[in-house]
Amino acid sequence: MILVTLVVFIGGTLWTIIHSFTSSRLLPKLNFAGLDQYERLWGTRRWLVSIDNLMLYGLLSLLLTLVIGFTLAAILDRKIRGENAFRTIYLYPYALSYIVTGLAWQWILNPDLGIQSVVRGMGWQSFSLNPLNNPDTVMYGILVAGIWQGSGLIMIIMLAGLRGIDADIWKAAKVDGIGTIKTYLRIIVPMMRPVFITALVAIASGIIKLYDLVVALTNGGPGISSEVPAKYVIEYMFRAQNLGQGFAASTMMLLSVMIIIVPWLYLEYGGRKNDR
């Protein structure tokens, strides 16, 4: 089984990379076409929109998830009554699938019956909250749902990191008269670098895979304004019957994952070997 896994993972990946240099359409063929697929890919508006969307979503989701996750963890770390209840509430969305998340938020953000209509019903007629049907704001709508689902996990990772910090550090900071906020920013955060890196890798690998959430919330719409790379791959492979494009796009995804992962793996596992 383990051998099968390796054959599928390594073999399958190589197979895809090799076939991304061919002009396969309905069926995979080995008629090499050089970099044609990649040139087409980077000349396709839909792919460029996908990349833009992913960058916007990725950057904001990374930043907001880290800030929210750390803030909540820092507050919960301060001997809070009902800590367990709060923790349970913040983490439960992570147990739900992206499909469930997407459908729940689609309903809340429904322009005719959701938040917008409730606020308008209270007398604020010009209030507008309809992110999912506007090409300029649709990614922010997806972002709200994505953060809702994923930030609890980061909170848990951060909380574990904070609990690992020696209480003497706090005493020392207090003796030196350093304020709470300053202690967090100047002392605690730098000490938690490994935790932040783990959180970063967790968020980043999730961002690149972003697919189900978009399918459930908007299915790429309106028009192509919320398309993402993972969706592009699936559409070209299984619907547009343009395998070569799908392979080239998935190879680009692999490349971007490797750019993030390889340095991290080197730090995490390569470093440990030297200690022995």
Partner: peptide, 9 residues
């Protein structure tokens, strides 16, 4: 860490 998309087909 390999994205699933590269192994789908």
């Amino acid at each position: 860490f390999i994205p699933y998309q590269t192994m789908l087909y």
